[in-house]
Design a protein around this nucleic acid. Structure first.
Lengths: 171, 171
DNA sequence: TATTGTTATACTCTATAACTATA
DNA sequence: TATAGTTATAGAGTATAACAATA
């Protein structure tokens, strides 16, 4: 382990900077998640609700299961999420005429209004994260991260943290 | 929300790519964390143990509380973490002659051997994450992330996910 | 009286699997 | 017999606060 260049230069025994790509990504990802979570607090929803609502908005009338499969959220978790959003009057479960077992999901007018605000929050949060970089730095950074995301099989708009494959701890 | 350039171009109503800086960071951070967690599985420890051991290694003999303050881990959580590592024979609580309330932490020889392997795992994991980038892309990416980390008040080697300020959900 | 570490308790989140109603 | 959704249950992880030993 003496020939490594980026990060871990300190080796097993010592101190030194811990500036590996993996660690930086993990740290910054955590900060980004936490920041968005906090930014949404005034609206009374969490990032997972935002993400789910966003996908319902994109294709209203789908069943819970169909959405759950796409976002890789297990059924019982979908029930809880939709319950929370329905109680708050943001989402609606309607009957599906062609299959009375299924529940078609729709966003209510209140849900639409709230999502408008939530998008605003997301935009502001996003701007805040990158505000210390120049426009050019920012776009180069985004391009590099996109390349990394593509190589790691990430789907745009589907956050792996929603799937329940919990990393458990930090790194 | 019509004048924004990076990410969120789709607006409240629509679909489209979700390639904001914040979302990319959150996604990739999650993937990096999860990957490291899985890479450590064969060694029987988790990233939090690795991080804690690493700090004990750096300055042996410190008290639990002193370490907990530095890493911002609450006392009862420190007890659980140290318990787990002590049961596995990787860490030792020794008496502190000058203050018999405090417990001085030391890494055992087995702990040292395991940390050697864990560093190797970390190095390999780090290399895997960035392997699709060229050396130049990689160093540019790291430089940009470091700048971002500095601006967001991140401490090198201290992962915010260890502090218990849970983001709760993803995004 | 304050502090270090520990333990007890309660709470949240989650997955698993049983269950119901439809198909 | 299979499927969509729900509910019940049990497990892990956490924080809070009470506690014991020592200062």
């Amino acid at each position: 382990m003496a020939h490594v260049k980026e990060g871990f230069e300190d080796g097993p025994g010592g101190g030194g900077p811990f500036d590996s790509l993996a660690f930086l990504l993990s740290q910054l990802g955590f900060v980004a998640s936490r920041g968005f979570h906090q930014a949404l607090l005034p609206l009374g929803i969490e990032p997972r609700h935002f993400l789910l609502m966003r996908h319902v908005l994109r294709d209203e009338g789908r069943s819970q299961q169909s959405l759950g499969e796409m976002l890789r959220i297990p059924p019982s978790r979908m029930v809880a999420l939709v319950d929370q959003l329905e109680e708050r009057g943001l989402l609606e479960r309607r009957a599906n005429p062609s299959d009375r077992r299924a529940r078609a999901l729709f966003v209510t007018p209140a849900g639409r209004r709230l999502m408008g605000k939530a998008f605003q929050v997301a935009i502001e949060h996003n701007a805040r994260i990158g505000e210390t970089l120049s426009a050019e730095e920012r776009s180069r950074l985004i391009a590099l991260l996109q390349k990394l995301a593509a190589e790691n099989g990430l789907l745009m708009g589907v956050h792996p943290g929603l799937t329940g494959d919990d990393p458990k701890a930090a790194s």
